[in-house]
């Protein structure tokens, strides 16, 4: 159990750090989507199924969609 949790948290932090470093905004958005998804898994592990559902459907899916639409209507690369 503890190994899984540690792995998840390290993966989550790695995703967050890579969201900081990516020059391509689309990649950064996908990385932050991954942060949200792993957070949803961790909510399940912390026995919060309601929040996990909300995080997966709102935090991961809809927020990413909104980001992608915004990037499509603006610009994709950070200079």
């Amino acid at each position: 159990m503890i190994v899984i949790v540690t792995f998840l948290i390290v993966a989550m932090l790695a995703a967050a750090v890579s969201a900081y470093f990516f020059r391509d905004l689309l990649n950064a958005v996908i990385a932050s989507c991954m942060v949200s998804l792993i957070a949803a898994v961790m909510f399940i592990l912390l026995h919060a199924p309601d929040v996990a559902m909300a995080e997966a459907s709102i935090g991961a899916a809809l927020v990413t969609t909104v980001f992608v639409i915004a990037i499509r209507r603006t610009t994709r690369y950070e200079k």
Binding site: M53, I58, T65
Partner: peptide, 17 residues
Amino acid sequence: TPGGGFQGGAIIASAFL
């Protein structure tokens, strides 16, 4: 069960998406 208005609303919005 787990879930409720916000989660259900988000799923409905995903259908429109």
